[in-house]
């Protein structure tokens, strides 16, 4: 996460200061991106080792239930699964550093192609969920803090507890039952790419995004409330009130900006929960995304696909954290890297 804020000696002129800030920010970002490489490589080694040690045999699954043991053995050999760990890892690693994630054992398609096929639905779902969660949870947290101790506060907190404690799949089934089967407002399942129409695209995402976003919403609403409670007790807020500033201006312009750092932190941390939740949500709503690809690959022991997807997720997660760190400087100009 973010490094310690470092004070910098002021330069002459605002332009000079801005240039220096931009330069150090870029250098920091470049360093962090370079630092992702060993992290991703370590993740790669860890995942490869874990899969090697894990029980299960893709050859047995390919051969099917009626296959003879001899057939299973021959398939295992043809897939190269009988080779020693280091040979397999070396081959895979050499290909990965050349940008080749390998070929799926089952589909015979390049892993990069399979990821490309699936990344659109997952990105759409996560973006939609993010927009929905942030646009709902932050106002909820702000209002709860403003009306601290009132029934509104309690209602928001109860909603948050509900969001935390209800599994994604339960929410998913409930939403599908009410809004798709009973009311017939939205589809039960599936995904429509945006190039087939904006409304069909959104229609398919509403229920999964609500189901996936509820826990995220609860998390952000609680943190927003806590951060706002702290900020609202500060002297400058009292001063703003005394100067006659409107409630909306105080809450959303002055106070919220100062409460934004912990909120940004929790948005970043919550991203991992979002990735995990997407796996379940995509299964419940039959969205052909990376989550379902991962589950299918794990169940079938499709090692190259599992490794490819985990590498991608770890890389994205590192980038999200970098983005959060950089956002700190936007919300709090005192923070420097």
């Amino acid at each position: 996460m973010g490094g310690d804020p470092k004070g910098r000696a002021p330069l002459r002129g605002s332009r000079g200061r801005r240039l220096l800030v931009e330069h150090t920010m870029l250098a920091y970002a470049a360093r962090r991106i370079l630092a992702t490489i060993p992290v991703v490589l370590l993740v790669a080694l860890f995942v490869f080792s874990l899969l090697y040690l894990a029980p299960g045999d893709p050859a047995a699954i390919i051969a099917g239930d009626q296959a003879t043991p001899a057939d299973v053995e021959r398939i295992r050999a043809s897939l190269g699964l009988d080779r020693p760990f280091l040979v397999r890892f070396g081959d895979w690693f050499f290909n990965v550093i050349q940008g080749d994630l390998g070929t799926s054992i089952f589909t015979n398609l390049p892993v990069s192609h399979m990821i490309a096929q699936r990344i659109g639905p997952t990105l759409s779902l996560m973006t939609f969920t993010l927009i929905l969660s942030l646009s709902t949870a932050i106002p909820m947290g702000v209002v709860a803090a403003w009306k601290h101790g009132s029934w509104i506060d309690r209602a928001v907190m109860m909603t948050a507890v509900f969001g935390f404690s209800t599994p994604v799949f339960v929410i998913g089934y409930l939403l599908a039952y009410i809004f798709a089967l009973r009311l017939d407002w939205l589809p039960v399942q599936g995904f429509t790419p945006i190039d087939q129409g904006l409304w069909p695209f959104i229609r398919n995402l509403i229920l999964p995004a609500v189901a996936l976003g509820l826990i995220y919403m609860a998390l952000i609403a609680r943190i927003t409330r806590a951060a706002m409670l702290d900020v609202l007790s500060q002297d400058y807020v009292r001063t703003a009130k005394a100067k006659g500033l409107g409630q909306g201006g105080i809450l959303f312009i002055h106070a919220l900006k100062n409460a934004a750092v912990p909120i940004a932190t929790i948005v970043g941390i919550g991203f991992a929960a979002l990735i995990g939740g997407a796996v379940v949500t995509e299964s419940v709503f039959a969205i052909p995304g990376l989550g379902r690809l991962t589950v299918d690959a794990i169940l079938r022991r499709d090692y190259p696909v599992i490794q490819g997807v985990v590498l991608l997720f770890s890389f994205v997660y590192v980038l999200v954290n970098l983005a959060v760190d950089l956002l700190y400087t936007v919300f709090d100009p005192r923070i420097r890297y």
Partner: peptide, 18 residues
């Protein structure tokens, strides 16, 4: 062929005419 791994979702899709 639409792959719907979850049995409840498949039943729902059939009921909804999807």
């Amino acid at each position: 062929w639409q792959i719907i791994p979850d049995a409840a979702t498949a039943a729902g899709a059939l009921q909804a005419g999807e």
